[in-house]
Every structure is written in structure tokens, then in C-alpha cells.
Amino acid sequence: MSDELIFETADGVAILRINRPEVRNAIDGATARAIAAAIDELDERDDLSVGVITGAGGTFCSGMDLRGFLAGDRPSIEGRGFAGLVQAPPRKPLIAAVEGYALAGGCEIALACDIIVASEKATFGLPEPKRGLVPTGGGALKLHKRLPYHVAMELLLTGKMFPAERAHHFGFVNHLVPEGTALEAALALAREIAANAPLALEAIKQVVLQSQDWSQAESHTLQTTLTAHVFRSADAREGSRAFAEKRPPVWTRS
């Protein structure tokens, strides 16, 4: 990894901490490449089941580094999008732990996650039209699916910020926690998820993501193609055996 991103692991969980507090964790090209490498490591390592992404210094991410943008530095990776993440999130579950600002691309990073834990003082927003830009990192594509249409359109077209409390009211934020505790709460949730069977976790995420493009007629058949290996796995037998024996399961990803 690089200085722009701190990568840590514990208890089956990977922590990706954007480490540019002097620019409110704005994403430049080097940071995007570091995040992409961390996502690859999360997916490749059998000892990791869940990722948590957060920011250093009390801010999640303020979006694209505009000074870098003006100098020709693009914080996107072909095929993976902004921050090396928004177009190609990990196969494994990813949780956003949000303190402070999650603006523009920072909001889109949160949108790319499966679960959002936010401080009561956190603020979200997509101010791109105020800068002559469009939120193409997932904001215009996803926000109206996570919020009521008219609420999403007001936020997209005005570019104004919305507080975490309002985001939580609409279900955009899963858990609203006291300031300074978002990472702690996200890690507790991540450990709860990581206690489950890793093959099942990945399959569930893929069914949810891919089924958005399935017709009703083909949905069950396509679901089977993504889940059949889970039912044939040693972990499926271990889960049933552990339940019968009243003990915690020991997963082997096999």
C-alpha cells in the first residue's frame, strides 16, 4: 500500500483508511490505485470476509482532488471508476464508516458500499453541478434508488448537502451513531458479518447485485448458478453440524 491509504486487518475484517486529512481525504490518482489494490487484497485473501472503508482525521472523503484534476491527475481507474472502487466494488461485503464530510466522490464511495454507518454529525452531498460537473461515479445512477425519487432529484439538481440524520430517516444510512464512533460501530457490525460463512456471504452479495438485471422468468435459474456451489460446500455441512452440536462453526471456504 501507499501513504495515501492505511490497510489493516483483524478478526476477518480489512480496514481501508483514506489517509489524506490535509485535503479532507480528497482522492487523487495514487489514492485510487491504492484503494484498488486494497480491494484486490480483500477479495483474494481467504482470511478476510468483510471490508470497512473510512477516512483519517475526522472526515470520510471530500471527493476528487480538484487541484490534481486541474493538473491532469485523474482519480479513476479504467474499468473500476472513481477511487478504483465505484464501478467494481469487492465481491465481499464492504461497509462505509462515515465521519464528517462524504461529498461528491466521497458520497459515491459510500453509495458503492453495502452498508453505511455514519456519525450523527456526518454530512452527505453531491455538489458536482456547483462545479460544472456531473456525479458520474454512481451518484446520478444510484441515489434515486436509495432515496425517494423527488428527494434524490432535489439533492442532485441543487447540489446541496444533507445531514446524516435525514439520510438515516430515509434508510440511506443503516446506523446513526455518536460522533467519533462510526468506525467502532462499523467494525462491530463487520465482525458480526465475518462470523458467517464466507462463501455464503459472497454469493448473497452477487445475487443481490446481479439480479437487478434479471427477468422474473430467469431469476431462479440464474440464482442457482451463483449459489449451487454453496449448498455443495463443506461449509454448508459444517454449519448444520455446528448447529446440531450447539457450537460455533469453523469455516474453511471449501
Rank of each mutant, 00 (worst) to 15 (best):
I109P: 09
A110Y: 06
A110D: 11
A110N: 10
L111K: 13
L111Q: 15
A112M: 03
A112G: 12
C113L: 05
D114L: 03
I115D: 13
A118D: 13
A118H: 13
A118R: 11
S119R: 01
S119D: 04
E120S: 12
A122T: 04
A122D: 03
T123A: 02
T123C: 03
F124H: 11
G125K: 04
L126Q: 08
P127A: 00
E128K: 00
E128R: 00
K130E: 02
R131K: 06
R131A: 09
R131G: 07
L133P: 02
V134R: 09
P135V: 07
P135L: 07
P135E: 13
T136D: 13
T136C: 04
G137I: 00
G137M: 02
G139S: 11
A140F: 00
L141M: 14
L141A: 15
L141E: 15
L143M: 12
K145G: 14
L147I: 02
Y149T: 15
Y149L: 14
V151R: 10
A152E: 12
A152G: 12
A152C: 11
M153W: 05
M153T: 09
E154V: 04
E154R: 10
L155P: 04
L156Y: 05
L156P: 10
L157R: 03
L157C: 02
L157G: 00
T158E: 13
T158H: 11
K160Q: 14
K160N: 14
M161V: 00
F162C: 05
P163K: 09
P163A: 13
A164I: 00
E165L: 02
A167G: 15
H169M: 08
H169V: 05
G171W: 08
V173E: 13
V173Q: 10
N174Q: 08
N174T: 09
H175Y: 08
H175M: 09
H175E: 14
P178V: 02
E179H: 06
E179N: 05
G180Y: 09
G180P: 15
A182K: 01
A182T: 03
L183F: 11
A185L: 01
A185Y: 03
A186F: 00
A186G: 04
A186W: 00
L187Q: 06
L187G: 11
A188M: 07
A188K: 11
R191S: 07
R191G: 07
E192Y: 06
E192V: 08
E192R: 14
I193Q: 09
I193C: 03
A194H: 10
A194D: 10
A195W: 00
A195Y: 00
N196C: 02
A197L: 00
L199Q: 07
L199S: 06
L199H: 01
L201W: 08
L201H: 10
L201S: 08
E202F: 01
E202S: 11
A203V: 06
A203C: 08
A203I: 05
I204T: 13
I204D: 13
I204M: 12
K205V: 12
K205Q: 14
V207H: 07
V208G: 07
L209A: 15
L209T: 14
L209M: 12
L209Q: 15
Q210T: 08
S211N: 13
